[in-house]
Design a protein around this nucleic acid. Structure first.
Length: 113
DNA sequence: CTACTGACTGATC
DNA sequence: TGATCAGCCAGTA
């Protein structure tokens, strides 16, 4: 049993390109359906030395989390471009079609880890 | 242990 | 559709 954060990281890292997950989805997979906030906080603390595709983690609205306009404001746009490169389609509202791109690990993936 | 915060979510207005 | 409120969990002071 790893720390909650590490579980989040491992889960995010195994998200295949062209697919996305919501904070709530991750929280459920970790056994805490209402720990979406904690998940967001975990991603907020993503180690700078480790590349975490957190851009593949979005909120229930299907959009990139604004993260409160910190010192970094160009990242969100860049992440959106990266997702588009992976094949994720954004609509005119900058939203993602969750029903089409939302990914959930299969039984084998869970068994493997 | 209590209080506060946060990249969330669902319900309500 | 957009803004607001309360509940939720983990981490930090």
């Amino acid at each position: 049993m790893k720390n909650f954060y590490e579980q989040v990281y491992d889960l995010v890292v195994r998200i295949p390109a062209g697919r996305v997950m919501t904070y709530g989805q991750i929280a459920v997979l970790l056994g805490k359906p209402s720990a979406a906030r904690a998940v967001g906080y975990a991603l907020h603390l993503t180690p700078a030395g480790v590349r975490i595709p957190w851009q593949r983690v979005i909120n229930s609205q299907g959009k990139i989390s604004p993260r409160g306009a910190s010192d970094i404001v160009h990242e969100p746009q860049l992440q959106r471009l990266l997702l588009e490169q992976e094949g994720v389609h954004f609509d005119l509202q900058g939203k993602i079609d969750l029903q089409k791109y939302l990914w959930e690990p299969d039984a084998m993936s869970q068994y493997e880890w």
